[in-house]
Design a protein around this nucleic acid. Sequence first.
DNA 1: CTGAAAGCGCTAACAA
DNA 2: TTGTTAGCGCTTTCAG
Lengths: 346, 346
Amino acid sequence: MPDRSRRLPTLQDVAREAGVSPATVDRAINGRSGISARARAKVEAAMQRLDYRPNVHASRLARAKGWRICLVLPTGTNPFMTRLEQEARAAADHFASERVQIDIAKTDVFSGPDLAAALESAAGTADAVAAVALDHPAVNEAINALVRRGKQVATLVSDAPRSLRQHYVGIDNVAAGRTAAAILGRFLGGREGTVGVIAGSLLLRDHAERQLGFQQVMQDEFPHLSVLPAREGMDDRHRVAEKTREILKTTDDLIGLYNVGAGNEGAITVMTNFGVADRVVFVAHELTDASRPAVIDGSIDAIINQDAGHEVRSAFRRLVAALDGVPISDAQERIRIDIYLRHNLP
Amino acid sequence: MPDRSRRLPTLQDVAREAGVSPATVDRAINGRSGISARARAKVEAAMQRLDYRPNVHASRLARAKGWRICLVLPTGTNPFMTRLEQEARAAADHFASERVQIDIAKTDVFSGPDLAAALESAAGTADAVAAVALDHPAVNEAINALVRRGKQVATLVSDAPRSLRQHYVGIDNVAAGRTAAAILGRFLGGREGTVGVIAGSLLLRDHAERQLGFQQVMQDEFPHLSVLPAREGMDDRHRVAEKTREILKTTDDLIGLYNVGAGNEGAITVMTNFGVADRVVFVAHELTDASRPAVIDGSIDAIINQDAGHEVRSAFRRLVAALDGVPISDAQERIRIDIYLRHNLP
DNA sequence: CTGAAAGCGCTAACAA
DNA sequence: TTGTTAGCGCTTTCAG
């Protein structure tokens, strides 16, 4: 049992132990400039001896001015994005008491130049930026400019992997697609027939990746199922309904459907009208106010989900930690690929 | 866009606005005694007007002495509990920099009196206690005694619902059992046959609950499957092997197996020896170093998991928040019932 | 019941 | 390159 009676060593203690001033210890700890290698070594040794751990509260308090983070979200009514915004507002409240201010900006994320412009303007006020990104040259350039100006940048949900962004907070979309395929294939339990795929837009990196993972597993593990090429539903229920209708009209043995993007209601309505809802196993993404009842009533057999709340909080935590220069536990921040059935809905 | 230039209002500002001293504001905010209703009202009004939010860093720093939390864990080699301990040690490191000290005590959790004794002794040094509990009179009494002495108590993973504990951090085990049944039933895809069930001990509340949920869904949704009564494997691979052997010897149409507790290796070995591993869909609990490879090689078809790391951190966060008297976001702390297949392993 | 004042541990000017 | 010192915003005696 450790000695619990004495208070923990402070920076002052380290200074005394090392025979230097507190300011020097501070410089050593925070890797600031203007300190000799010799002094640094002395401090390091003293820290070891005392098993010193900085007090984050004192540090943040002394730093006085808090941080500002700007979150860039897509305009529009995509329920998942709406959820992301709600969660961000809730988190903002919490972060406010840590003197971290969170502003939300909205832009048409599907347009590279628009997003780039939004990022640039965010740079003016914010110390860090989190954005639902796009793998587009203008966006990459804007992100890189931010990073070069010393900002911390996190991409959220949708990545810009070729940019210099320091963090990506989101799921592995290839794995998500693989998971969807595994669930769909196993739920089909050996039945033979055709599986349809609807994506939002295959230009979106995450949708393309999911689709890829899905096809991989279908081919490898369920070769008795034939998979139709993906059709683009543009994350819109009407377009999705249209595509579903197309699929049903040209396929008489449809037994599975995978919707990579949003707009599930469209697919459900059409399948119900065609009277195939029971026969077709339907796997979709994102647990939302819209999809939840469909899972409960069985219209959707399984949902592949990423936790929007966790994602925004994680992005903010990563950004703040980076700004503070403190380490962060990767395990805690990993965004999981959730599988939801009726019985384990949160 | 909010005004971002001026600093946030401080407690001093509230004091000035209310025409009282900072000490009085402090008393009002923290619900301390020795303050008139009139003063309290003035402060409250001022806080409203200024939209004041306390600075948690300043508060924690000023409080000077940190908190001590004791975590009571079972002795033994249950891999899930081992994991819990690892995660707790990792978290301890992080909490140390917030001046929250975490001590770990171990005891035979299966014995009510032993656990009760451990809880009592923890009370001496700790401000709060987290424990893997047991629904037993002696334990309830010990928990109640702690609570009456002003300690915060959280049960972890396994609850003592009839005690006065302020927090339970863990999953809904009935729902977990239901989820296991749904996965197993659907993976069987209409095949007919028998499903075996092995529990650790039905005296353990969580195992009994899982088993209950499992039976419910099997009956309701998969009436074509016949489910054997649960056998007790005592969370031990050898006992589990023995029980699996018993089941296989008396059942020639076994097509599913659900292991409620630990000891999956035993079941896998026996099923492999009997040559039924491919035929039988096997659903088990907890992703561990032992079960992980089995999921990858397909010996286990699906794992129902609770995130050990999330659980300990959540317990600590809840306890600290309660001690600090600050609110906490329930959504963030909810422990999910994870479903893992090969493709979405973290 | 209320207020004054001395810190909590660290950071950031400013001096040296 | 190093040290001195005045805070950051809140809590906590201790007087009044």
